[in-house]
């Protein structure tokens, strides 16, 4: 395993070394003492297993395509933003805009996510073990967003085709968001996904897969309708 010690290094130093390792074919890379540096491991475009021991700042794993990145700590804003593929797992919590605008890949936040989780997501899977803040899923275009706990106000506002599942309470639905009961296939998908990525959730006392609600777009904001004043007065 290759190791990079961030102590006393700039993010430039760390990212340069990381890219050297990845392009040199090293598959297992361990980053220690990240000290909440911003912009760690951005734009990594090859497969590699990268473990970061400690909390990270803004935009960690932003714009990646392919690597598997595990953060043993918490993450600042914009975790994995705009990723194309790969997996990012945080065993703590994540700040605002986690998984913003991702096009594919998987983002797993074991604890809580702050506001605007998965905003403008265009594909992929976002999975939160705990709760999330307001405006999660805002303008979500495609992909799947799963929150095992409670979600804040304005949930799933103005979405296109993102499909959301919530295991806890929804403080308030966003404009044009509607609740549906998941199908049996969707319950099976949720069980498989949680078993794969967050198995301890499935084993937790009182956990029940049938508590999950499905939230999707009501599609009333897709095209303007001057007869639908109730919906559009919130959106125009």
């Amino acid at each position: 395993m290759a190791t990079i010690d961030c102590f006393d290094k700039t993010v430039r130093d760390v990212n340069t070394k990381l890219r050297d390792f990845v392009s040199g074919g090293k598959n297992d890379i361990h980053i220690i003492n990240p000290e909440s540096l911003h912009n760690l491991a951005v734009a990594i475009t090859k497969a590699a297993n990268i473990t970061i021991d400690g909390s990270v700042g803004y935009y960690c794993a932003g714009m990646i395509d392919g690597p598997t990145i595990r953060i043993n700590g918490s993450a600042g804003w914009g975790l994995a933003e705009s990723m194309l593929s790969g997996t990012v797992r945080v065993n703590g919590s994540a700040g605002n805009g986690a998984a913003a605008a991702i096009r594919d890949g998987t983002v797993i936040i074991e604890a809580d996510a702050a506001a605007r989780l998965g905003v403008s997501m265009k594909g992929g899977l976002v999975l939160v073990g705990g709760n999330c803040g307001y405006m999660a899923g805002f303008m979500g275009q495609k992909g799947t967003l799963i929150v095992c706990g409670d979600v804040g106000a304005g949930f799933a506002d103005s979405m296109y085709e993102t499909v959301c599942f919530v295991g806890g309470e929804i403080a308030e639905l966003g404009t044009d968001a509607i609740i549906e009961k998941p199908t049996e296939d969707e319950y099976s998908y949720l069980s498989r996904t949680l078993t794969l990525h967050l198995p301890t959730k499935m084993e937790a006392p009182g956990f029940a897969i049938d508590r999950f609600k499905k939230v999707i777009s009501g599609r009333k904001l897709w095209n303007f309708d001057n007869q639908d004043w109730e919906t559009w007065r919130e959106a125009m």
Binding site: R12, R19, H38, N39, A43, M63, N96, G97
Partner: peptide, 23 residues
């Protein structure tokens, strides 16, 4: 933008773009 709001955050965003492109 989905991942920053004001100029302080934008400073970090700009650094992200620089890091992505090796400056």
């Amino acid at each position: 933008h989905p991942d920053f709001l004001g100029p302080d955050d934008m400073r970090i965003k700009i650094e992200e773009l620089r890091e992505a492109t090796d400056w």
